[in-house]
Design a protein around this nucleic acid. Structure first.
Lengths: 352, 352
DNA sequence: TCGATCTAGTACAACGATACAGAAAGGGTC
DNA sequence: GACCCTTTCTGTATCGTTGTACTAGATCGA
């Protein structure tokens, strides 16, 4: 049983291979009569159209872009935030008739360089025209491979590399706005819940040596929040595992059950904040009065529960990442997206 | 500026192209000395390894499988359930060094066959070795294209096609178990909240003509639930948009504010049930006493809030889908995965 | 010492398409 | 009728690999 190819169809229809190819790709280059005859014989022979792999090789175009991410897939997409980004990206990809290839990588630990091979391999094998590095550490080897391959690379984390392009969120501005908001409300003791690579375990105060285990975004937000709250505030950063409601609840429980309960809890994501909210409720406390609560991202649920948060134009971020790779007219190399503080009922003046 | 290929490297290193190829793919076919020289020159020339597109063509292997789905991406992955499946699938793909290509399709409306072209096109262009059809209607044209291309196709919806393989969930069994549970608790008036293609609008009772707009899974669950509750029960199926907490809340609000409030509300997914739970609370009613509530899927949050639900081995489903495509030793053509009723505090005896 | 087997490498033909140059036929213009 | 332009189609080179068949030399057992 032989495969049906352009050649088979051409012979059967009594035309040249070029003509069959054109029948599919350049319909205006041939008469309708011939075109229809060709397509008819193709159908008769069970030919499903030009082989995409062969086309990729010849036309030097893969018809897909890759999405690199380092966390396990189930964590990476457990947050509506990530899904929003993915959706924005897919939207642009679709209009460019381009696929989206997921490329899960392992987290890169510089002290174990040999573990990099599977990730590098995955990046070498991917049939793509360009790559989006989504929250992939700057020193991850897969980036280097992508650049070696000469693939356009767009990143969400700034590492000042001339060869890459960037779509960034103004994390510092966001942290500043949140911090100032809390400070203006009189909060002098603030708990911060951050997420990180380690799975949910005992919630605990973040030690300096833990910082490497935090997600890159979390790190930036934590720093700018601390700065904005100023030196007179007492800040307790708590680490409670992956980004999940459970982790948020655990982190908040830890903070609330301490002797010196903070008057406000700032969570590094809305998902964490939703969990924290449950913990506050469970203790019979009122959110926004006895404990102020903030999130980050403005996912749909945030509005529903009145969560003060920072809005990120997340779908827009996804779309820009896509456009940078796919739209040749979009030449910007570096975009910093603004964020917006959205004040809702979960924050209020610090109780005296 | 010319591209660096196997040939370039071969000439520079003074060996044949085959040898360079072997240096990458069959390290034991050549001496370490030559291999190292080859790799060194490759590095010097900036050669990033064999081009995956060319390899795909030559070896007739794409190194990726496609995931077809018909809903908008942001809806498709807004549920932890879908993400769980994706994670299971990705896990198997990874062990087989295979990528995962997302192929979003448009919903197929048989009355508008011309709209099928973009979807069919996307399926024709995808460089994949096989395809998972995830909740894609049986008559969707993209399926036909995949089969025309001779691609192995694994599906999550039964349509009794010899050419396909299936991983199914025992929806009927699940519906029966849930229905019997509610019946045994004495519930004679049950509201069912289903999701569907139409966006969140006014919640309303499902009319027969709406059924086509429901998601396929929802349809099956609705039917078996109805059957299991038996003829003496009053069943009100309510339709409230996409699968989201908001839709669940809206659907529950509709049911709870009716004159003849049902004593139990069964939701077609846990996400809907979480929203319904909020609506029940908001009305000052107690879940499990005044109103019983059930979900479907057993997502992590379900346990946290004590939701009675049906557990689906979702990651296992994803893994099986992957194995069917990638593991040649796995020859099963049709798997029916069992479900398990998980009774928690959200259901209790019907109040008299 | 001789054929047999093994090792390390080479040469060349695919894989299935598209790009590009060119040819044949038809039509319009002067 | 010569000229040029369009339209429609053909022929061939090429994209960058890998598989297969082959060769030269080394190794080995009897």
């Amino acid at each position: 049983m032989v495969r049906v190819t352009l050649k088979t169809v051409a012979e059967e229809a009594g035309v040249s291979v070029s003509t069959v190819s054109n029948a599919y790709n350049k319909p205006d280059q041939l008469s309708t009569a011939v075109r229809e005859r060709v397509l008819a014989t193709a159908k008769r022979l069970g030919y499903a159209g030009p082989d995409p792999a062969a086309r990729s090789l010849r036309s030097q175009r893969a018809g897909a872009i890759g999405l690199l991410f380092t966390e396990q897939l189930s964590y990476a997409f457990s947050d509506p935030y990530s899904v929003g980004l993915l959706a924005g990206l897919a939207q642009v990809a679709e209009t460019h008739r381009t696929g989206l290839l997921l490329i899960p990588l392992e987290h890169f630990d510089p002290s174990r360089p040999q573990d990099a091979e599977p990730s590098a391999q995955a990046m070498r094998q991917a049939v793509v025209d360009g790559v989006v590095a989504y929250c992939v550490d700057a020193d991850h080897p897969a980036r280097e491979v992508a650049l070696e391959r000469g693939l356009p690379l767009v990143s969400t984390i700034d590492d000042a590399d001339e060869r890459q392009r960037y779509v960034l969120i103004d994390e510092e501005g966001a942290g500043r706005a949140l911090g100032r908001h809390l400070r203006d409300l009189g909060h002098r003791s603030v708990g911060i819940i951050v997420d990180g690579r380690a799975p949910l375990g005992e919630a605990r105060v973040v030690r300096p040596e833990d910082e490497a285990d935090l997600f890159v975004d979390s790190r930036a937000r934590l720093t700018s929040l601390r700065d904005a709250l100023g030196p007179q505030a007492t800040v307790t950063a708590v680490f409670a595992g992956h980004n999940s409601q459970e982790a948020g609840a655990a982190g908040a429980a830890f903070l609330l059950d301490r002797q010196d309960r903070p008057s406000a809890i700032a969570c590094i994501s809305d998902v964490l904040a939703l969990g924290a909210r449950d913990a506050v409720h469970q203790r019979g406390l009122e959110v926004g009065r006895e404990v102020s609560l903030t999130g980050f991202d403005d996912i749909p649920r945030a509005e529903a529960v009145g969560l003060t948060t920072v809005r990120q134009p997340i779908a827009e971020k996804g779309r820009l990442l896509g456009r940078m790779l796919l739209d040749p007219d979009y030449t910007e190399r570096r975009v910093l997206l603004p964020t917006e503080l959205v004040v809702r009922s979960s924050t209020g003046p610090a109780p005296r």
